[in-house]
Structures are given as C-alpha cells and as structure tokens.
Simulated scan of single mutants.
Amino acid sequence: MSDPVRPEESEAREPARAARPRLWLTVLSLTAFAVLIALGIWQIERRAWKLALIDRVEQRVHAPAQPAPSPAAWPAISTANDEYRHVTVAGRFLHDHETLVQAVTEEGPGYWVLTPLKRDDGTLVLVNRGFVPSERRDASTRQGDNPDGRVEITGLLRITEPKGGFLRNNVPQHNRWYSRDVAAIAAARGLDKVAPFFVDADAGSQTTGGPIGGLTVIRFPNNHLIYALTWFALAFMLAGKLLVTFGGGLFRGKKPWNGFVHEPAGDAARRTGSDAGTIVEQA
C-alpha cells in the first residue's frame, strides 16, 4: 500500500500546477499581445502620415494660385498630388447647365451651386461657385447675380466625389445630388470635355448677392496618438495579467515557518489525537 499524501505535500504541488498553463491559452495570449503591439505601431505610423498630409495641404492652400491643369495633365490628377491645390481658371459660365448639390455649412442647410465654366480651348471645368440657402434654390431668384462675360475664378482644386454622400446615393434622373460627382453630373447635363475635378471658388470670386464662396472645410481628424496609446495600454495590461497568471508558481512564496516541526508519533509521544505526532518546540 502506498503512503498517503500529506496535506502539506499536496499544497506544495498546487503552485507547480498553477505555473504550467495550458498550451492553447499561452499561444492565444501571446498572439493577442503581439496583435495589440502591432496595432499601436500602426497607429504611430498613421499619425506620421497624417501630419505629413496636413503639412502638405497647408502648403498647397497658401501657395500662390497657378493655372488649373490642362487636358494633357488630366490623366495624372490624383488626390495625393493635387487635392486642395490653389488654382485659377478663366472662361464663361454656362448658367443654364448648373447643378445644385445638397450641403450643410456654417451658413446652415442649402445647396452648392456647381456651374460649368467653358475655357478658351473649349474644355469645361465645373466650378463650385458657393453656397445658397434653400429659399434661393430656384435659378430664377439668382439670375441677376450670374456674371455673363468672361471671368477668372480663384479657388481650390477638388477631386470628384463619386457614389453620392454619406448613406445617400445621387439620383440623376430626379436631379437629386448629394455629392459632387463630376462624371455623373457631366453625363446628366450632356457635357463633354469636362475636367475630372472641380474648383471650390474662394470668397473673392463671389458676386454681390451670388453664392457664398470660400466655405471649403479643410479638416483632417488626427486621433492616432490616442488610438496608439490605447492599444499599447491594453497590451501592457495583458502582459501584466499573463505575468500574474503564468508566473504564479514563481512568486507564490512558501508558508512562513512558525517555529514548530511535526514529527512522527512514537510510543512515548504525547498525542492529541488517535495518530497525532509529537509537538516539539525548537530552540
């Protein structure tokens, strides 16, 4: 018959079992830790990219205005290289082909007035002349404010906005527009030789009583540092939990010695039970 396991021996084995977590839990925890660290690093990289973007846009907006790209340069137009460039464009407005796009601005709800501008070479550039409130939606209320002759517009080059606005698609057949989709507007108005961008006119280009220009909102949310700190904090919290869980057997100390030892019982021993050992006080 094998010797019975003493209670103190059983207690000594429990920390050892606690210090050996299951393999799948170890792998899952380390994987989660690595993913959290990777997400934090990715947000740091995104922050650097966003700061560079903001700096680049600021330089474009405040640079001297240059002529809008010619047809030869249209295929190379891109958001990264051209968005918010300060440009000028000259020609005559085709007011009978204007398009109203729903907008919400600091002036309230209303519409952007997009009007094709025909340049000397016959090409067209859509110009966002600015904002009008809902009560001035009808073009007949603005005819006296529409310039007839040749004009020169200064503003910011904007990239086309396809597929409609947030959760709302353009409906060209019903003349409902929620984004400034250049290609769709050109098709709906029967226009050709249209530039693949539009120009947001600045405040100096507006006419008395006409659409309010210069309302372009340039805002780039930059919360990447907060996101990075959040991911790193979660990673270190997980690391602390792993250290406590997996290292339990290493940091859980032995029971403190109380000055007494438990010896096997002998014939002359003083017993307190049927098979109790002798209590011997140590010097």
Rank of each mutant, 00 (worst) to 15 (best):
residue 245 T to G: 04
residue 200 D to N: 15
residue 78 S to Y: 04
residue 122 G to V: 05
residue 283 A to G: 11
residue 18 A to R: 09
residue 184 A to T: 12
residue 254 K to S: 14
residue 166 F to Y: 15
residue 220 F to W: 10
residue 267 D to F: 15
residue 59 Q to W: 01
residue 222 N to S: 07
residue 118 K to P: 02
residue 252 R to C: 09
residue 83 E to W: 05
residue 7 P to R: 07
residue 142 R to W: 03
residue 270 R to H: 13
residue 96 D to F: 00
residue 17 R to T: 05
residue 214 G to M: 08
residue 125 V to N: 02
residue 82 D to C: 03
residue 110 G to E: 00
residue 15 P to M: 09
residue 108 G to H: 12
residue 196 P to Y: 12
residue 91 G to N: 13
residue 80 A to H: 04
residue 194 V to M: 04
residue 207 T to L: 04
residue 222 N to D: 13
residue 242 L to M: 15
residue 120 D to P: 03
residue 138 D to S: 11
residue 268 A to G: 15
residue 168 R to P: 00
residue 85 R to Q: 15
residue 62 H to L: 09
residue 247 G to V: 08
residue 277 G to P: 13
residue 215 L to I: 08
residue 47 R to H: 14
residue 117 L to P: 04
residue 140 S to F: 12
residue 240 G to E: 08
residue 161 E to V: 12
residue 199 V to G: 03
residue 196 P to F: 08
residue 231 W to M: 01
residue 66 Q to L: 14
residue 245 T to K: 05
residue 260 F to L: 14
residue 201 A to S: 07
residue 234 L to V: 03
residue 231 W to Y: 05
residue 165 G to W: 08
residue 102 Q to S: 15
residue 105 T to E: 06
residue 240 G to M: 09
residue 232 F to C: 02
residue 129 R to K: 11
residue 238 L to W: 09
residue 162 P to T: 13
residue 281 E to G: 11
residue 161 E to Y: 12
residue 219 R to C: 02
residue 144 G to H: 09
residue 239 A to L: 15
residue 207 T to V: 08
residue 151 V to Y: 03
residue 228 A to L: 01
residue 142 R to T: 07
residue 234 L to T: 06
residue 165 G to C: 09
residue 73 A to Y: 05
residue 50 K to R: 13
residue 71 P to N: 05
residue 124 L to P: 03
residue 213 G to P: 07
residue 229 L to R: 13
residue 254 K to Y: 09
residue 104 V to P: 01
residue 80 A to Q: 12
residue 199 V to D: 02
residue 152 E to F: 10
residue 102 Q to F: 13
residue 57 V to M: 04
residue 21 P to H: 00
residue 75 P to L: 01
residue 227 Y to N: 01
residue 224 H to Q: 15
residue 278 T to H: 05
residue 8 E to W: 06
residue 279 I to D: 04
residue 102 Q to K: 14
residue 34 A to V: 10
residue 152 E to K: 15
residue 127 V to Q: 03
residue 137 R to T: 04
residue 174 H to P: 00
residue 90 A to P: 03
residue 12 A to C: 03
residue 279 I to W: 11
residue 14 E to S: 08
residue 95 H to I: 10
residue 184 A to L: 15
residue 282 Q to Y: 01
